[in-house]
Simulated scan of single mutants.
Amino acid sequence: MTSRRKFIADSCRGCLGLLGLSFIAQSCSTSSNVFKTNATNHVVFVPDTAFTSGLPNVKIRVPEMEFDILLMKEDADYKALYLKCTHEPFGLVQTNNKLVCTAHGSSFDMQGNVLQEPASRPLKKFKTEKIPTGINIYLR
């Protein structure tokens, strides 16, 4: 039988390990711009100028959404992923080549597919449309 003292010590070490993993994931994160905007009729407009830093990714922050959207430019195409873990509602951190949930360790590739459980479903993807002055992200 485990003593109360050993149980508490083991629990604290586990929590510190998760906290350390969180700091490591954040320190390995890839920088990206944060573009703040609003949705109109469930459509988010992102101007081309949001990509001015030369980075291929932009985090879109919309007050109506609990988590950010990652808008990625790939050649002439655009992809938008909701940065909400599908295991439990926690935000994701972008590293060099994946998206990581620092709460429970789930990870996703840049297409939104699960790489590491406990998440078992892919990330939510939003339809995008390139228009002459920018990109529309359709939230429905």
Rank of each mutant, 00 (worst) to 15 (best):
G17F: 13
D10E: 15
K59P: 03
V46R: 06
L115K: 11
T133P: 07
V100I: 12
S3Y: 11
S53E: 12
S22P: 00
T95L: 07
R140D: 14
E117D: 07
L21C: 10
S120F: 05
N136L: 10
G54I: 05
F35Y: 15
A25T: 11
D10T: 13
E88C: 02
G14Q: 14
L99V: 07
V114G: 02
V62F: 06
R140A: 13
F45R: 12
C85A: 05
N97A: 13
T2N: 11
G54K: 09
L123G: 02
A25E: 02
S11F: 15
P89R: 06
Y78Q: 04
I131A: 09
M72K: 11
L55V: 00
R61H: 08
K6S: 15
K79Y: 09
C15A: 15
N96A: 14
T128G: 08
I60L: 14
K84A: 10
T133Y: 08
V100S: 02
T133L: 11
D109Y: 11
P122Q: 09
G112Y: 03
S53A: 10
V62M: 06
F108D: 05
M110T: 08
V93F: 02
S11G: 14
S120Y: 03
L19V: 05
E117I: 10
K59C: 11
N136A: 07
I24P: 01
R13P: 04
P56N: 15
N57M: 10
L21W: 07
C12Y: 14
G91I: 03
F7R: 15
R121L: 13
Q26H: 13
E74H: 11
Q26G: 00
R13N: 12
S31R: 12
E74I: 08
V46F: 09
I69G: 02
E88F: 06
E74R: 15
V46M: 06
G112K: 04
H104W: 02
K130V: 14
Q111D: 15
N57Q: 09
T86S: 13
S3M: 10
G20W: 03
T95H: 01
V114M: 01
P89W: 00
P63A: 05
S31M: 06
L123Q: 01
F51K: 08
V58E: 03
T86F: 00
S29C: 08
S29G: 14
L115H: 04
F108P: 01
V93R: 02
R61D: 10
T49A: 13
S32F: 06
N97K: 12
L139M: 04
K84F: 00
E74F: 02
M1F: 12
L81E: 01
I131C: 03
T128V: 10
S120E: 11
E129R: 15
G17Q: 13
E88A: 13
C85K: 03
L70T: 00
A9F: 10
T95M: 05
L139T: 09
A50L: 04
T102F: 01
K36I: 04
F51Q: 06
R4D: 14
E129S: 09
P122T: 05
N41L: 10
A25Y: 07
S27Y: 03
F67H: 02
F23C: 04
K130D: 04
A9T: 15
G14F: 07
G20R: 12
L21N: 13
L123D: 00
M1K: 12
N136P: 01
G105R: 02
C101H: 01
K124R: 14
S27F: 08
I135S: 06
Q26N: 09
I131T: 14
